[in-house]
Amino acid sequence: MPARKYLRPERLPTYWCPGCGDGLVVKELAGAFGDLGMDASNTVLVSGIGCAARAPGYFLLESVHGLHGRAVPIAEGIKTARPELNVVIFSGDGDLLGIGCNHLVHASRRDTDLTVVLIDNQIYGMTGGQKSPTTALGVKTLTSPDGNTDRPVDCQALVKAHGSFYARATTFHLPLLGKALRAALTHRGFAVVDVRSQCPVNFGKRLGFKNAYEMLMHFKKAYRPVAGEVDRLGPGEIGITR
């Protein structure tokens, strides 16, 4: 398996909860690295804080585990000093669209050549299940026991506001996720791959999903792949925009 050389199998099993989607994204990204024959000695992973931010630890690549929300500016610093490096960011919805949201907007304005892998589970999972910037309206979480009243952040709208690359996939639609990651990695400029992922332990169970399988089946039903590359993705659509 060509992906294996990018990973640290000795670190397995991962620290994530059973059924977490983060491992699937790690596998797909390593696969995309393999498919593109990327140079491991020339690729850097950057992350902030949160469950997704632990992903770089499973890669046999240089990495910086920074501070909550600050993965994007740290990555911009790396890319500015060493433009020849491939710089890939692992982030979550709280990290990228909450505490560090302004960095996303401004990096896309500058069109810095970075690839952002956003694992969006719509919850603050690491701290136990508080509502996040992408929690849907009406959804009950530990900090919205009566249902969330705040509208979720529209990541696509933020990224497309400056014409950057945006793709959306889910942890059920893995071939599409792989394709989106390859397209983002080869895109020159700022690229975001928004991956809808499941947090069965600190979110799904409270929503009535018995396990990760049920959440994945929900993704299968709720999201419709769009062929080719489009200008915008509608609600419930997954695919690649440019």
Binding site: I99, Y124, M126, T127, G128, Q130, L142, T143, S144, P145
Partner: peptide, 16 residues
């Protein structure tokens, strides 16, 4: 408030 270990519970319990 914003969640942060190990203080999250204070405001989370309060939100209930």
């Amino acid at each position: 408030a914003y969640p942060i270990t190990p203080a999250t519970e204070i405001v989370q319990i309060f939100s209930t």
